[in-house]
């Protein structure tokens, strides 16, 4: 089984780290193959940013995604740019207070607001999103996501990031 995932948003939202944590969880802790390519233009904070992540049971040869099984949109422009790539049976996951996608998907989470409510800043919205993605897609195991978070974020933020992961995961379970 191969899943092609596009995670997209604004520079500064932690888009690449989101993809990195999921890719690392799959590759190092779930025993799968994963290959991550970050789109790398003249982007800086505030402009568009995306990562292509492939997770597979087999060796990954072609490094870019051909069609998207899971699109994660953290911004409206990201949805507009990448929605056409989504496969017929693909899913769209979105930040539902930054992105209007009610007509195409039920998988929305107010990750930014949840981060602000819980931590007083939007800093953790990406890891909340990782928790949500983990819960609604099952693409990685929760334990693997926790381990990937633990080993990917600065040590003084581990506790809050693990809480953020749980917040996103629980939001999915409570709104299923």
């Amino acid at each position: 089984m191969t899943k092609e995932i596009r995670i997209s948003g604004f520079g500064g939202q932690g888009v690449i780290l989101t993809a990195y944590i999921i890719g690392k969880a799959a590759s190092l802790y779930d025993g799968k193959e994963s290959s991550l390519i970050q789109s790398f233009g003249p982007e800086a904070r505030g402009s568009s940013c995306s990562a292509q992540l492939i997770i597979s049971d087999e060796k990954i040869l072609y490094p870019y995604i051909a069609g998207t099984d899971i699109l994660v949109a953290m911004s409206q422009s990201a949805l507009a740019k990448f929605f056409s790539e989504v496969k017929k049976d693909g899913v769209v996951i979105y930040e539902n207070e930054l992105v209007d996608a009610k007509n195409i998907s039920t998988l929305g989470i107010p990750a930014t607001r949840l981060s602000e409510e819980e931590f007083g800043k939007s800093f953790y919205s990406n890891v909340i999103m990782v928790g949500y993605i983990t819960a609604v897609t099952g693409i990685i195991k929760l334990g693997s996501a926790e381990e990937a978070v633990r080993t990917s974020v600065p040590s003084h933020t581990v506790e809050n990031n693990l809480k953020a992961l749980e917040t996103g995961y629980n939001f999915a379970k409570n709104h299923a």
Binding site: Y20, G23, S35
Partner: peptide, 10 residues
Amino acid sequence: DECIGHMTEK
């Protein structure tokens, strides 16, 4: 090449 340089894998 850029693709290998910016590709993250195990």
